[in-house]
Structures are given as C-alpha cells and as structure tokens.
C-alpha cells in the first residue's frame, strides 16, 4: 500500500520530480520556493542525482537546457522575478523542442513586489512568456496532492510533446502542508533518439532553434503549431462543482479556487444555487467546457489574486452567452470566502 505523508507544497514538488525520474535540478534561491531548492540539495544527492545551486536563474534554465538536450529529465524552480529571467531559456527550449519542467511559486509583482501569494504571472505562464510564437503546458494545481500529481505528470507530458511544462503555484501552495499520497519511483523512462549523446553508430544529431533559410523557420513554426493543437485537443483538465443545479458559477484556479470553494459551501448553506468551475490546465485552457456551462440567465464571477488575467480567457470562452464579472485582489491580497460571497450577492 502506498502511504500518505504530511509534506509542504515545496517538498511535494521535489519528491514528485524525483519519483518521476528527474535526476537533474538546477536552481537559485528565491522566496517562497527556497524549501524546494533546499530539499533538492540533499534529496538529489541521496538518489545519485545532480543538484547545482546556479549563479543565476539564467544559468539554471540553461543548465536545464543542457541536461535536457543530453536526454535527461531536468527541472528548475523559482518565483516570479526569477521566472522572468528564465524566459530567455524557456523560449529556446520551446524553439528547440526540448522537454523541461519549470516551477513558478508565484509571488506578488510587478518588480520586486513582495513574497505574498499572487496569481499575477498568469499571462506570462499561459501566453508563452518569452519572445517568439510558442506555448508551454501550464498547470494550476489547488492542493498539495494535485501539486504532486501534476508535477509528476508534467515530466511525462514534457517528454511526450518535447515541450516545456510549467507548474504555476503560489506562496500558499508552496508552504502549506497537507497529506499526500506518493506515487512510485519511475524506472522506465522514454527513449530519446534525438538527444545529443555522442554520434557513436549514428549520424550526428543537432539541436538548435536557428533557421536562417527563408521559409524554413515558418515551416518549423507551423510544425510547432500542429503540436500545440494536439496538446489543446488532449491535455485539457478542469473540474466543475455543482454543475447540474447552479445558476451562478465562480471561476477560479489554484489556491484561489480553494477559497472560492469555501464561498460555494457557505452560499449553498444559505440556499444559493452556487457552483465552481476550476481550470486545472491553464494552457491549454478549457474554453469548450466553460462555454458549454454558459447559458442565458446564468452568471459567472471570475475570482483571481490579480487584476484580472484569467478573466480574459473566460471572456473568450463565454462571450455574450452569459453575464461575466470579475473580482480580484492584486499585490498579495488574499480574498476570504465571506468577501467573495458578498461580491456574489452584489451581482
């Protein structure tokens, strides 16, 4: 039997990576994800893996780039300002079609901001983030178990699609402790004939994102587009709570969805027909599922810990089919269930 252990979000991510077969971790300290870097510093060595405390986030993501092109499962983690620095590398990973897992324990910005929980990096996580026309798989877990499961899954999807995958957490998820059912340590990892391992017995392999010949880059980008379409068709994840009998839905992800769920329970006690739609994959976004839920007469309130970023995706999904409004707290503000319920009653 696989037993449950009580661990923090930071530790859950680290353990999930190890169990998914990741043996290369590169990171640079930044709150609120330091426990993850610290965890990897001893845990990687315990399992015979490599841990490097790099000189910067730029170096860390490029070490991931190197380990990944060499055929290994590799991960880096950071928080918002550090994720900005990693964007150069993420763009190169996407261009070179290299798998990697990147963790962002989102803190409040812009600039140095502060270390309180925030969802202010949603745009960056779901729109590529760096330069160029690309996408990264992005998951927004809302419990420590889900953080563990999605990190574990992210390695498989990154390899399957040869694309970077991102986990968007926040300061709450990073530090809260919850019981987690661990998964088995992966023994068999996918073969990577494209990796650079020395050309013994084969033609040389090249990994690059430069395509100087006119038209060749366009072809490459169309190939990427076809891959993104496949991901959009297959990798959408979400949950609907009280979908059948609700006429008012909250839409929230991550820790904010946990708080929104609190509001739903309170509201239901008062006899309100309140439900929750929770996107789990932020890219690809569950547009169709949300559209299906929307009908004339229903109302939707998007709740985020930012100024309204996922709000744009909800608008794309629902359009004029139902009434949509937004409630958010930027700069580290964390709404309470009561506060959310008050907003519901206003609309």
């Amino acid at each position: 039997m696989i037993k449950k252990v009580l661990i923090s979000g930071n530790e859950a991510v680290g353990e999930a990576a190890i169990r998914a077969g990741c043996r290369y971790y590169f990171g640079y300290p930044i709150t609120p994800q330091n426990q993850l870097t610290e965890y990897m510093s001893w845990r990687m060595r315990e399992v015979g893996g490599t841990f490097i405390q790099s000189e910067s986030e730029l170096a860390a993501i490029n070490m991931v780039f190197g380990a990944s092109l060499a055929g290994a499962r590799a991960m880096t983690s950071s928080s918002s300002p550090g994720i900005s620095l990693k964007q150069e590398g993420i763009s190169y990973l996407a261009g070179c079609e290299l798998p990697a897992v990147i963790i962002n324990m989102n803190r409040a910005g812009p600039g140095l901001g502060n270390i309180t929980p925030s969802q202010s990096d949603y745009f960056q996580a779901t729109r590529g983030g760096g330069h160029g026309d690309y996408r990264t798989i992005a998951f927004g877990p809302s419990s420590i178990q889900e953080l563990f499961d999605l990190t574990y899954l992210a390695f498989d999807l990154a390899d399957k699609y040869r694309n970077p995958a991102l986990i968007l957490g926040d300061a709450i998820l990073a530090q809260v402790m919850e019981p987690v059912k661990l998964k088995k340590i992966k023994k068999r990892l996918p073969k990577k004939p494209w990796a650079l391992t020395g050309c013994k017995g084969r033609k040389p392999n090249f990994i690059r994102s430069l395509y100087l010949t006119p038209g060749v880059l366009e072809t490459h980008n169309w190939k990427l587009a076809a891959k993104y379409k496949k991901i959009e068709e297959r990798e959408i994840r979400y949950e609907t709570y009280y979908g059948a009998d609700s006429n008012f839905f909250l839409v929230a992800y991550g820790s904010c969805a946990r708080i929104a769920m609190g509001a739903v329970m309170e509201g239901r006690k008062e006899g309100m027909k309140l439900g929750l739609f929770r996107p789990i994959s932020l890219w690809p976004f569950p547009y169709k599922a949300l559209e299906k839920l929307a009908e004339k007469g229903k109302k939707f309130l998007v709740v985020e810990m930012n100024l309204g970023q996922m709000f744009d995706d909800v608008k794309i999904a629902i359009g004029n089919k139902a009434k949509i409004s937004f409630y958010g707290r930027p700069g580290g503000g964390v709404p309470t269930p009561k506060e959310i319920l008050k907003e519901v009653k206003k609309r």
């Binding site: 730029l58 990944s68 092109l69």
Partner: peptide, 21 residues
C-alpha cells in the same frame, strides 16, 4: 559530430548541464 547551439553567452551553463548528464 553532435552539436547544439546555446543562447548568447550561455554555452558554459549548457555545457554544465550536458557534462553532468
């Protein structure tokens, strides 16, 4: 032989990742 290309200035970090693997 096997060759990759790194972002401007980052080859030593990329080499570190490859060599550790």
């Amino acid at each position: 032989f096997d060759v990759t290309e790194a972002a401007h200035g980052r080859p030593p970090a990329v080499a570190t990742g490859i060599k550790r693997v």
